[in-house]
């Protein structure tokens, strides 16, 4: 016995592609689909993986990142699986990839119209924190009743003076649907706004696919007098490549101080190499 190309049977792939098409037609709307069981565990990127496997063809070049790095164990694991069942080329270079599967980050380098970004989503429902019942949240979306999402932000402002609540800050897509952008940092929310590329989001365990098509309006929820704020690292620059204004990881410098480095490691390398490599 041998496994089929890209693991899933063709009927399943067609169904996933149909759900993705529908998602593109209704930006930000969560399209239910019959998520398949995958060889990796639920919650480890099976939604993204199903999209990747349904979309991938022999000509594609795949990049997989987890928390900003291609060498995170989970990224390695997913890349290994796709490569083993398809034989497609893989890369670390954002610019060379046609298909990028990512967990919790949008790459620093702006993507082009020829690239598709697939984001893994743990909790696709932006209203889940305030409303546990699925049949209620579906109705809220249908009626565009987003009071609950704003109320959560309002309470946050009352308590902490800021509407910015860590990663996965909800966004309004195309002026209609409030969407969970997946737990990307707030800095990455802005990369989805009027982007050149298609972003597909897949939640395997919760069985939802949704999309931000190219050139779509994406606005992070905020108030007229309390604007949305992205993470700020002050004037900190990456200690490796010297860049500012990107998402940085913190490290202990071994001397009681803090060191910052680009979270997007492959882009950091690309920047270093552009500055002139020492070798």
């Amino acid at each position: 016995m041998k496994h089929p190309f890209a693991f899933l049977d063709e009927g399943s792939k067609r169904e996933i592609r149909r759900a993705a098409f529908k998602a593109v037609c209704i930006p930000g709307y969560q399209v239910p689909f019959a998520s398949r069981e995958m060889p990796i565990a639920r919650g480890w990127g099976t939604g993204g993986l199903q999209l990747t496997l349904a979309l991938i063809g022999p000509q594609d070049t795949l990049k997989v990142i987890d928390q900003g790095t291609d060498e995170s164990v989970n990224a390695v694991n997913i890349r290994r699986l796709v490569h083993a069942t398809t034989g497609v080329q893989t890369t670390h270079h954002t610019a060379d990839a046609t298909l990028i599967q990512s967990r919790h980050r949008v790459p620093d380098r702006p993507l082009s119209a020829k690239q598709i970004l697939v984001l893994q989503v743990p909790i696709p429902e932006p209203l889940r924190r305030v409303e546990p019942r699925e049949h209620v949240t579906r109705k809220r979306h249908a009626e565009a009743d987003y009071t609950a999402a704003y109320l959560a932000l309002f309470e946050r402002v009352l308590k902490y003076g800021s509407a910015s609540a860590g990663a996965d800050h909800p966004v309004m897509v195309a002026g209609r649907h409030v969407m969970a952008p997946s737990p990307i940092p707030r800095l990455d929310n802005e990369k989805l706004h009027r982007a050149e590329h298609l972003t597909l989001l897949g939640a395997g365990r919760e069985k939802k696919i949704y999309a931000v098509p190219p050139h779509t309006e994406v606005h992070s929820l905020a108030f007229d007098d309390v604007p949305f704020e992205v993470e700020s690292f002050g004037d900190q620059a990456c200690s490796t490549c010297g860049t500012t204004g990107v998402f940085l990881d913190e490290f202990d410098d071994g001397d009681g101080g803090t060191l910052y480095r680009c979270n997007d490691t492959s882009e950091c390398l690309a920047r270093l190499n552009a500055q002139g490599a020492p070798l």
Binding site: D145, T147, Y150, L151, F154, L158, F223, D224, D225, V226
Partner: peptide, 17 residues
């Protein structure tokens, strides 16, 4: 305060102050 703001939010208010 949040309880009262909820009905205002539902009516479309978006100014915290």
């Amino acid at each position: 305060t949040g309880n009262i703001a909820e009905t205002m939010l539902a009516a479309g208010h978006r100014h915290v102050g």
